[in-house]
């Protein structure tokens, strides 16, 4: 009886997983199709990949997307970390909760609202749409996630260390660079990774604030997909799948590293607790 129910549950999980992955593998499968459609597989070919690498416009767009992602996540990480420190040092409870809820506004707002309101903002102050407006928007919507990733690490940090550092004569900069930053690095890295994927993944906000001259990959795929199927996109998505796989593995290892550090600390504590053995 029990064995049977376990089998059913496995079957269900397998079904969910296959549904989740089927579209992705479907895309990748047809990227090797020599026929022009996503419905009948005619023969194996690398042509679509060759076409991706020969398409200068597409390559430029990919590089632009990566550049925006990298720059925006770096800037968001710096500002977000400062923000987390600012929230952490805010003594008044009321102010702190207000700051936190303001921080979360962009986390819960639908993309369309963020995009539309940023578009109004940029036109209102007369900022021209293009690379800079896209970059600024990406920085803006990535900041709150960095704050949310860094803040718990600050709370975990031992406050007495800072006091000790001050007593030993460290100045502000030394306290920040030698005590605070090392202990919140895992949070900062996690925040950077999240910001990077947010930026790569975004379509709606970019679509609103991009104007005419500048395009990111998501926007380009949207306009191409509206014209119909082109297997170049399939090849590109296969490449992007590999890239995100690498990112996930990287993120996983950072997490694992953090965990093992924690476990080591725990073990150390445990060892300290039973010195008799």
């Amino acid at each position: 009886m029990k064995k049977k129910s376990i089998k059913w549950s496995n079957l269900y999980l397998i079904a969910v997983f296959s549904v989740l992955y089927a579209p992705i593998f479907y895309l990748i499968f047809y990227s090797f199709n020599s026929g022009g459609t996503m419905t009948s597989f005619e023969g194996f070919t690398w042509d679509n990949y060759v076409a991706v690498f020969e398409d200068k416009r597409l390559i430029t767009i990919v590089l632009n997307t990566l550049l925006v992602a990298l720059l925006s996540s770096l800037a968001a990480t710096v500002i977000g970390t400062f923000g987390a420190l600012a929230i952490y040092y805010t003594k008044k409870r009321q102010t702190r909760t207000t700051l936190l809820s303001l921080n979360n506004v962009l986390m819960v707002s639908p993309d369309v609202i963020i995009g539309a309101s940023f578009l109004i903002l940029f036109t209102f102050i007369g900022f021209s749409l293009g690379f800079a407006s896209v970059l600024l928007s990406h920085i803006a919507f990535s900041i709150p996630i960095v704050v949310l990733m860094v803040l718990p690490k600050l709370k975990e940090m031992n406050d007495t260390m800072i006091m000790a550092a001050r007593d030993l004569g460290a100045n502000n900069w030394q306290v920040l660079s030698k005590v605070i930053l090392p202990s919140i690095t895992p949070g900062i890295l996690a925040g950077f990774f999240m910001a990077f994927t947010y930026s790569l993944d975004d379509f709606a906000v970019t679509f609103f604030v991009t104007g005419n001259g500048f395009t990111t990959l998501a926007v380009e795929i949207y306009s191409r997909a509206r014209q119909g199927v082109s297997l170049e996109i399939n090849a590109l998505s296969a490449l992007m799948f590999l890239f995100s796989l690498l990112l996930v593995v990287g993120y996983y290892f950072i997490q694992q590293h953090n965990l093992s550090k924690k476990q080591k600390n725990k073990k150390r504590l445990a060892v300290g607790a039973v010195p008799i053995r």
């Binding site: 989740l20 047809y30 996503m38 419905t39 990959l217 998501a218 992007m240």
Partner: peptide
């Protein structure tokens, strides 16, 4: 590990997933 595998598809751009369904659901699709 399984949870990570659930999260992984969310890292693929939403547009690409939507695009895949254009093929899957089309009149001659799977």
């Amino acid at each position: 590990l399984w949870l990570l595998l659930i999260i992984l598809p969310t890292w693929i751009n939403l547009l690409l997933k939507a695009y895949a369904f254009i093929g899957i659901f089309s009149i001659n699709g799977s």
